[in-house]
């Protein structure tokens, strides 16, 4: 479904000493594939380039070299307009700190992408949001201001919003980074369920609990993939992951 071929990304800047022009490499010739229905977790230390990789694969960030092919379309050759439409119709995105529009109630924030896409009637979209909110256990919060709900509730709401247009793939950037343990479990249960229903998921995380729910883990260090492993269901996945992380 997604084919990442030899992508590199570098940024130009100035050296702290001597104020010289330098080029810093963030991603170095990275390649991997995500199949339909996959659940991929990208792990790595801070500054390793994992968020950049996620934003690049979702078309929100531009790469310096290489190709990203989504359903046969090369994202690196698409213009901004087409990428926006693609994000609207085929992708869902969840940020580390749930980002919502301040001037809309929580409910209106969730239906907005559906109304903008205009693929279905407004009533159908509203019903779907209500269903999703019930599923995420936030159905009582629809009329609230986004500053009146907790971080965990807001993160679940973000997932609702990301799912509103029935995306083919869900991108998540540290989805549990700002949550407590109970909220984290709740969010992960939902993600697992969505994946079971066929939604492809790519997430960036520090948290091994997230990686444990994934089917495949990619480890990245200094902009390079240092490990890639599938963890089949069954057996002691926690131990296997721990051992693997020690090795990569």
């Amino acid at each position: 479904m997604i084919k990442v071929e030899q992508i590199s990304k570098s940024v130009k800047g100035k050296s702290p000493v001597g104020n010289m022009a330098i080029e810093t490499s963030i991603l170095k010739e990275i390649s991997f594939e995500i199949g339909r229905g996959d659940f991929v977790a990208v792990m790595g230390p801070s500054g390793s380039g994992k968020s950049t990789l996620l934003y690049s694969v979702s078309g929100m960030d531009q790469v310096t070299a290489g190709r990203i092919v989504f359903d046969g379309i090369n994202l690196t050759e698409m213009n901004e307009e087409s990428l926006s439409r693609l994000r609207l119709n085929k992708m869902g995105f969840v940020f580390q700190n749930a980002q919502m529009l301040k001037n809309l109630s929580l409910f209106d924030n969730l239906i907005l992408p559906g109304l903008v896409a205009k693929k279905e009637k407004a009533q159908v979209i509203r019903n779907r949001v209500r269903d999703l909110m019930i599923r995420m256990d936030i159905d009582e919060l629809g009329g609230r201001d986004i500053r009146e709900v907790s971080g965990g509730q807001l993160q679940r709401a973000s997932i609702c919003r990301a799912m509103i247009n029935n995306p083919e793939v869900l991108f998540l950037d540290e989805p549990t980074g700002a949550l407590n343990s109970a909220a984290t479990d709740q969010v992960l249960d939902i993600l697992e369920a969505l994946n079971d229903e066929g939604t492809t998921i790519m997430t960036v995380t520090h948290d091994p609990r997230v990686a444990l729910r994934a089917k495949k883990v990619i480890y990245i260090r200094d902009g390079e993939i240092t490990g890639e492993k599938e963890f089949p269901v069954g057996g002691d996945r926690e131990q296997a992951l721990e051992d693997w992380l020690k090795r990569v």
Partner: peptide
């Protein structure tokens, strides 16, 4: 700037 980024992320174009 955050609202603009959110809008872009959920599928609004720069033109929008």
């Amino acid at each position: 700037h955050r609202d603009i980024a959110v809008k872009k992320a959920i599928g609004f174009t720069n033109r929008d």
